[in-house]
Amino acid sequence: MFSLEHFLVVGAALFCIGVVIIITKRNAIVVLMGIELILNAANINLVAFSRYDANVLQGQMFALFVIVVAAAEAAVALAIVLRVYQYYQTVHLDKLDELKEK
């Protein structure tokens, strides 16, 4: 059967993939996907660890919460991306450098 390590490895792999996506991808929507991957990596860890929990369901409940929050976050983030697109006519992150001193 699958031991705890397997889950942790999958979670870590997912996390790393998410981080790499966030750092390397230039498209804002793809970056959002990277964020989702990181969140789900955390979820896998939560569910995997909940097996050793006395009350069993704490980790799973927490994972559900994360999914809900992630959905809300995705909605808000996509709305922002839409606004950004309307304003700048692009979602390419390298071009969104208003914060930089010109």
Partner: peptide
């Protein structure tokens, strides 16, 4: 001191990480 404030969100993220 200004050079770290590149205006790129991803580089900020990288620093945070």
């Amino acid at each position: 001191t200004r050079s770290v404030q590149g205006g790129r969100v991803q580089s900020y993220f990288l620093y945070t990480l």
